[in-house]
Computed example of a mutant assay.
Amino acid sequence: MTTTVTLAQNKLAMAIANPGALGSIDAYITAVNHLPVLSAEKEVSLARALRDQQDLDAARELVLSHLRLVVSIARQYLGYGLPHADLIQEGNVGLMKAVKRYDPERGVRLVSFAVHWIKAEIHEYIVKNWRMVKVATTKAQRKLFFNLRSMRPDGHTLDPDQVAHIAKTLNVKPEEVREMEVRMSGREMALENPEDDDDTFAPIAFLSDEGHDDPTQVIERRAIDLQQGEGLDTALAKLDDRSRRIVKARWLQDDGGATLHELADEFGVSAERIRQIEVAAMKKMRLALTA
């Protein structure tokens, strides 16, 4: 039994930043659920060893023993349409932050302390990656976004009294509740027809080309497009090879772009590191484009 647990721990130690590394998310979850739960005494002992001696093996054991908590919390956010593996990955980052900050002398179990950090990382990931969440810019609006789904009775449209109640409960404006409800109930539609079918009309077929009869405007738009394209190439040229690869893979692909998880596998680093490189690269490109 000890050998089995050790093998599972060794695999998971390499997979913490990459839940898909074990072959599938189901395999990862199965391995996580086979790890032993720490007793209160053992947890305090390991936490003290980490705090007093910077014992990384103790930190590793604390993290591994709580990975099932991350899986459980991440499952609650599957309704936002983001990959389960990515949610778990972000939750694991929060767990590691919690382990680093945990004080065993406060008399609180790590599981209670870590919940906040795990949810905070997952919330941040959802806000950054779910397009419809871009309106959630304030703390109150984020609270509205993450609570509205559960506060809508049976998923039905809210009536005025329910809107007023939710707005009062979450300390937001009624119009913000209505706007968020519309955004969460809507779905994206392709502007162009994804299939080469002359008998099927996409929304773009019904839009008029206001510049069609004015050759001057057509030429001007083409000139602007050419200038912007050259500017983008110039900005990309200022990046190092790794940063350029990440930006192109994330933003310049026709298939929707690579995920942080996929790029983390490619470069052998964590998804958080990929995000940091991406942010720095985009900032450098913005400076180049505005120079």
Rank of each mutant, 00 (worst) to 15 (best):
I122L: 08
R178T: 14
P153I: 01
W117F: 13
A264F: 03
G107S: 03
T157C: 07
K283Y: 00
H84T: 02
A235Q: 04
L38S: 10
H156I: 01
E210N: 15
D233G: 00
Q9R: 15
D213C: 14
D198G: 08
K248C: 08
V182R: 13
E220V: 04
Q9G: 10
I224S: 00
I246C: 08
G91K: 10
L56Q: 11
R142M: 11
P36F: 09
L35C: 06
G79M: 10
L287W: 02
N10T: 02
A8C: 02
D154V: 07
I219S: 15
L7R: 13
I118K: 12
P104S: 10
Y77V: 01
G231C: 08
L263Y: 04
R51D: 05
G20I: 03
A202Y: 05
S72T: 09
N147T: 02
Q54P: 00
L78R: 15
D55S: 06
G20A: 12
K173S: 14
V127S: 09
K119A: 07
L78Y: 04
I224L: 10
D57V: 00
D86Q: 11
P36E: 13
I166R: 12
P19V: 07
R183Q: 09
S39L: 03
E90T: 00
D197A: 13
A167Y: 10
L87C: 08
R149A: 12
G23F: 05
Q9D: 07
